[in-house]
């Protein structure tokens, strides 16, 4: 059959964006009615950052084809354990994203994972939130609730190994709450969060398949300042400039009202020797400790133009480029954070 997408043994986000997304786009171009079948029978491992991306991709396909997407899993694979224990299966069923063969699942004698290694998701609507009209107040309310949730879900387990310094645990918790807040405000879709932590550090990945930054900004009548300023770069860098406009908006709010949100989060992650990746459409922007930790280019500046130029100067086609332009993208915003444990 032409609509089967076969996944490799190991699935990373890089592999996903370069292969799976391209293949699904080809399937859709040939036949817009028949949904693809995702075949993971060979797959043994999904990298933590790719877990929410696959769920939000499934959610995107479900909306596109207006039906749940078939997902094939090997009956003896270690992936099966993960699918059950991480709540991948239960969330897929609850939100009607994937159809997974029940017989295989039910016959598998699974082994529990640590609580931390479970996927969480945020809803599209919350009654408490819908009543708040002011966007800033709405944001603060959501953030407060999600900080409580993140602490309850992740706080204890991030501390239980005593491997991570307290400032990194705090940064991790506020990172999760911050990104999920943005997702609820901007995406109008489910967002999925997966946190994996071990003695070497912590990986956080949060993905949604919502309307994205650009339409949200237009709806709120906010200007995409960097898109306007760098118009001459052309459509290739449009999504890059949208991402930078969003960060710039956050930077300006930080300067004006000392408010902490996406920009502050990014700088905090980098200060904790972390890597902050933000993806919109087909474009991923990477802020790393090596390049950004001690950067003072923005000091005293009104906007983040110098940051925009710096990343552009370092952009290349290789895998170390801070701006990655994939051939195909899908709607929504994805953020990945990796914080390594500091050497003692």
């Amino acid at each position: 059959m032409d609509n089967i997408i076969i996944f490799d043994e190991k699935i990373s986000t890089y592999y996903f964006y370069n292969n799976i997304l391209r293949k699904s786009f080809e399937i859709y171009s040939l036949d817009r009615e028949t949904p693809p079948i995702l075949d993971m029978r060979k797959t043994q491992y999904i990298t933590p950052s790719a877990v929410p991306v696959i769920l939000s991709f499934g959610d995107y396909l479900r909306k596109l084809y207006k039906q749940p997407i078939e997902l094939l899993i090997g009956s003896e694979s270690s992936l099966l354990n993960f699918i059950i224990c991480s709540q991948f299966k239960s969330i897929s069923e609850k939100l009607q994203i994937f159809k997974i063969d029940k017989e295989i699942i039910e016959s598998w004698n699974y082994k529990e994972l640590r609580d931390l290694h479970k996927i969480s998701y945020t809803n599209i609507h919350y009654t408490d939130v819908d009543r708040i009209k002011n966007p800033v107040k709405k944001r603060d309310y959501i953030y407060d609730c999600l900080v409580d949730k993140s602490k309850a879900v992740y706080g204890k387990i991030l501390q239980d190994t005593h491997q991570l310094p307290i400032n990194i645990i705090d940064a991790t918790i506020s990172s999760i709450a911050e990104i999920e807040t943005n997702s609820i405000i901007y995406s109008n879709s489910y967002s999925f969060t997966y946190v994996a932590s071990d003695k070497y550090g912590t990986n956080i990945s949060i993905a949604d398949s919502g309307v994205g930054f650009e339409r949200s900004f237009i709806k709120e009548k906010r200007k995409l300042n960097m898109v306007e300023k760098y118009q001459k770069l052309g459509p290739k860098f449009h999504n890059y400039l949208v991402i930078m406009s969003v960060l710039n908006y956050s930077y300006e709010k930080h300067l004006k009202d000392k408010r902490a949100d996406l920009w502050t989060l990014m700088t905090n992650v980098v200060k904790c020797n972390g890597i902050f990746k933000i993806q919109y459409g087909n474009t991923q922007v990477i802020f790393s400790q090596n390049s950004c930790k001690n950067c003072k280019r923005n000091e005293g500046k009104k906007d983040i133009s110098s940051c925009v130029s710096c990343l552009l100067e370092r952009q290349s086609e290789d895998s170390y480029s801070p701006i990655k332009l994939f051939g195909v993208g899908f709607q929504g915003v994805r953020i990945e954070i990796a914080v390594d444990k500091e050497e003692d």
Binding site: T122, N123, Y126, T127, C145, D148, V153
Partner: peptide
């Protein structure tokens, strides 16, 4: 609130 519907954290959140 609706954010704390996860079974894993209901009890913990009540303690706070």
């Amino acid at each position: 609130n609706g954010f704390i519907e996860d079974e894993r954290i209901k009890n913990t959140s009540r303690q706070k």
